[in-house]
Design a binder for these strands. Sequence first.
DNA 1: TCCAATGCTGCATCAAGTGCAATAATGCAT
DNA 2: ATGCATTATTGCACTTGATGCAGCATTGGA
Lengths: 209, 209
Amino acid sequence: MQEVIDAPAQPAVREPGLREAKKLATKRALSSAARRLGVEHGLDAVTVEMICADAGVSIRTFFNYFESKEAAIVGDAPAIGTTGSQQAFVDGGPTGNLLADLMTLLDPTLAIETEGREEITRAFQLIQSEPKVLALQLSRGVEHERILAELIAARRGLPGVDSTCTTMAAVAQTALRRGGFEWFLSDGQRPVSAHLDDASAALRTLLTG
Amino acid sequence: MQEVIDAPAQPAVREPGLREAKKLATKRALSSAARRLGVEHGLDAVTVEMICADAGVSIRTFFNYFESKEAAIVGDAPAIGTTGSQQAFVDGGPTGNLLADLMTLLDPTLAIETEGREEITRAFQLIQSEPKVLALQLSRGVEHERILAELIAARRGLPGVDSTCTTMAAVAQTALRRGGFEWFLSDGQRPVSAHLDDASAALRTLLTG
DNA sequence: TCCAATGCTGCATCAAGTGCAATAATGCAT
DNA sequence: ATGCATTATTGCACTTGATGCAGCATTGGA
């Protein structure tokens, strides 16, 4: 009962093995297949079985990686900055402008760098055309909203999250989402920050007009 | 092939018959049962079969009324004001303040009047605790956002919806949602408008610092 | 009272999703 | 290289969600 299990030196510190790489590759393959097939045939016409056939794994394995068909399309929620950039935000940086600083935490350009434009474009299309996918994507945002509210509270020196922080987080996220959306549509013609400025302007108009 | 089907005088103008009343009652019973059971046992532990047993109809009938278990809980999307109040909004009324006027279109007090506080409270609880329900509720908001953007464009005298209108609609809806949320939590201690003012203040703070 | 319209139901069917136990692949220590 | 412990993959059985279809029951009106 109180047998010790050999004390495995570093329990779970490093993990860049071949095993991890393969898992990541499988996950990517499933996401990619789901997106490709979904765009081509419409999500309802694509079964998990087809996705698995395309990726070369069993159905059961699919559900070891994703909770649902939609989850494979949306992918994992991106992290909110790094520990360092979160701390910088709390300390009032990097620019001092709240909305702009939040944008650095939820930078939409990162997803393209890590997954590639092709992948993101397909995911983007499906979010717009498939209600189920949209619904999942939106509910993902709720977790982000919670974290943003905490960061905002810390930045403002409050002991905890209050109603104001939550509202600021919710509205900021909406504005950032709109900015990112327009930026993606414009295909990088203008920088993200320019679209964010547009969103800020709209926000101002909402208050004054 | 070109047989005419008797031209039914008024096709679908009036409908206050006993038939309609029964349909509405069934729909209400299903929603109510879904909410009650969902709150009590958790949504995953409640099958459509249980809901139907409670409401006294067959499973097949359930799916004649709702597309999914979650849809029964959320209920139909409330209308955005009346034709009249929409026109008043477009004309710049009723108060001249954009956010306040939008609140009159998405008045959260209406749901309580039509469905009763009990029902709304249970739906509210489930939206907060069940991700699937939350997801559906949020995706419902997208349709609202589209309509709000059109109304805002009309109010501002624009020929069509542009990026700014959409952002204003998205942000306004978020702020209104937050105001309504806090109002419901406060159990009517303060009027809806007071909570909306809080949201406006948070919005201002977001822009200034 | 009969009839047309429409709502309700049972049945068959498919797809999503989960638990479990057997199997295969991997990393590591010898 | 070889064996062993770990962990990923898979097949299978099963529950539930969801839909099409066809027959039955109810309703409202002539």
